[in-house]
Amino acid sequence: MPKARETVLEIDLKALKHNFEYLKSKLNNNTKILAVVKAFAYGSDANEVANYLQSLEVDYFAVAYASEGVALRDAGVETPILVLHPQAINFKTVIERCLEPSLYSAKIFNEFIAIASEEKQSNYPVHIKFNTGLNRLGFSENDVDYIVSKALETSAIKVKSIFSHLAASEDLNEKTFTERQIKTFKSISKEFSKAIGYQPMLHLANTSGVLNYPEAHLDMVRTGIGLYGFGNSKEENKNLKPIATLKSVISQIHTIEKGETVGYNRAYKSEGVEKTATIPIGHADGIGRQYGNKKGFVTVNGNKAPIIGNVCMDMIMIDITNINCHEGDEVIIFGNHPNASQFADATNTITYEIITAISQRVKRLLIKG
């Protein structure tokens, strides 16, 4: 891969393909794959990632909001797109752009039926979300009769799938809870299908569900973090490849004397003669202030360099006292070694947070392999 000359996020499509094929190998031939590409495809590049996965014949995409689905349609994505958290104000746009809404409450359900009827739709595909223990969004098990009766009253919509979301599938200490969720969802599915008179598509498993609970694969699985190279465990991380590498460069090197300070609020004080380097990336780019004062580190020429002082909006400073390097040299914030999971561990946060936080002002560079 080319050496960075500015702050860039490299996106490796070969790694994406590897992850897709690895996750697919865990499924039987009849189980569909839905790729979650919300939040700019977990901080990478949703348009490029979705179009590449479309070329690999992924079955479905999911986004959080309607605007994300519109952006994918504008980028040429024709694969079905599930909108996981639509708002009623966007329902006309959802229909205009052939997006498929998740309906998770009586209010949202009835409002979409009204808009679909007004727009003279017939059998418009919708997905019904059930809450089985995450307690975030979704109908309860007791709502089955209500949903079915409303759905059968109108020809404007047709329930294409019913689904739920596992709350702790990555934590095997919560296996009993997860198995109870699976059992509850299968019970809901049986009751729903019988009442509505046909079998909607069923999906429940997220990435950790794919890896840990094959009995939850059902008709389709939804994978997000796994596609981007993380399996929510050290063991599975070895089988996946991070698709994103965040790189920058050394802008300037300083030699400071004992007792001199670095950065805002004089947060770092030198204990002797030291060398520091300034890097053009900061909290406006997704490297939060919590990584300052030696909590986080970057890699320069294969060596760990702690972040010193407070993280600035557009810059960080690092200690390079014992590292042979020069202005213009490449700096790795995260990639393969260390990966984003290890970077996030420094402040007890999660991989999801660090990779989705990378600002859109950071240049994306596609590596096609």
Rank of each mutant, 00 (worst) to 15 (best):
201 M>D: 07
200 P>H: 13
226 G>A: 09
222 R>L: 06
220 M>I: 04
222 R>A: 02
211 L>D: 04
198 Y>D: 04
207 T>P: 13
202 L>Q: 15
224 G>L: 11
208 S>Q: 02
212 N>K: 04
204 L>V: 09
220 M>F: 06
217 H>V: 06
216 A>T: 06
201 M>F: 08
226 G>H: 06
208 S>G: 02
213 Y>K: 10
219 D>Q: 08
207 T>R: 10
228 Y>V: 13
229 G>F: 14
215 E>T: 12
223 T>E: 07
230 F>W: 10
213 Y>S: 07
226 G>T: 09
225 I>W: 00
200 P>K: 11
219 D>Y: 03
230 F>M: 11
203 H>R: 10
199 Q>W: 06
205 A>M: 03
220 M>D: 05
199 Q>G: 00
228 Y>N: 03
226 G>R: 00
204 L>F: 13
224 G>C: 07
215 E>L: 11
226 G>V: 00
210 V>W: 00
222 R>Y: 01
223 T>P: 04
222 R>C: 00
201 M>T: 15
223 T>H: 00
230 F>C: 09
200 P>I: 00
218 L>N: 05
212 N>Y: 03
227 L>R: 09
229 G>N: 13
211 L>V: 09
218 L>I: 10
226 G>I: 00
230 F>Q: 10
206 N>Y: 03
225 I>C: 05
214 P>M: 10
222 R>I: 03
212 N>D: 07
211 L>Y: 08
226 G>S: 05
207 T>K: 14
215 E>R: 05
203 H>I: 03
204 L>R: 15
203 H>F: 14
223 T>M: 14
230 F>N: 11
